[in-house]
Amino acid sequence: MLEVRGIQKHFGDQHILKGIDLSIEKGDVTVILGPSGSGKTTLLRCLNFLENADCGEMTMDGRKIDLGRASAKDKAFVKDRTAFVFQNYNLYNNKTALENVTEGLILGRHMHKDEAIKTARVALDKVGLSDRENYYPSQLSGGQQQRVGIARAIARNPEIILFDEPTSALDPELIEEVLSVMRKVANEGTTMVVVTHEMSFAENVATKVVFMDQGVIVEEDTPQVIFTHPKEERTFSFLKNIIHDTDYVI
């Protein structure tokens, strides 16, 4: 469904991504793990052109795109098929929860307003916020805002949803409400790529775990393998630091 080869990205003289290959199949829930600064977020942002990669190749739905020279049409093609959930929610502060969802449907998908509202209500219902549709982001808690962010993404019915640390900005007691929505979305067969530090989500929901460090993919495998028998020393030491319950790892 989505395949990338040899993505490279520099910020100034910092080499952030040093040739990333990744392939994502329909229905996959790919979790990307790694220490901060390893390039996880940059990789995710390159996948839908929030950042432009220096070079690399992308194949999406049979369309080949040279990432170093992607045209506006290429970018629109990919953006149309992907949705992004941000760490800081990035809801439109001048729009209500409902409008946050309909905006992309009406303008991006050219949906009729009534149909967009109907679609948006279904999405908001799915994230459990039907009763908050007329609230502005400033009136919602962080967890609620992020759920609106997820509703905004799923309403467009994209082929892939990219999640960039969706729970990192949340208070601990609000994390679970977002994770449970994400589990629900995953269980419906949505293809997802998730950058997160939530190990329980990676362990229980992911179909594939990718471990990144210093701009390269160190290791990728099923969560069962990654969490019990990682092949690489770097993966092991990272997981050991994160999961205090170390006797579970190996």
């Binding site: 953006k79 800081n88 809801l91 502060n93 992309g104 449907l105 993404a153």
Partner: peptide, 14 residues
């Protein structure tokens, strides 16, 4: 916040 612009363009707005 620039993030809102990013959200909009990644959500299908020009």
């Amino acid at each position: 916040d620039r993030g809102q612009y990013e959200a909009a363009v990644s959500n299908g707005l020009t």
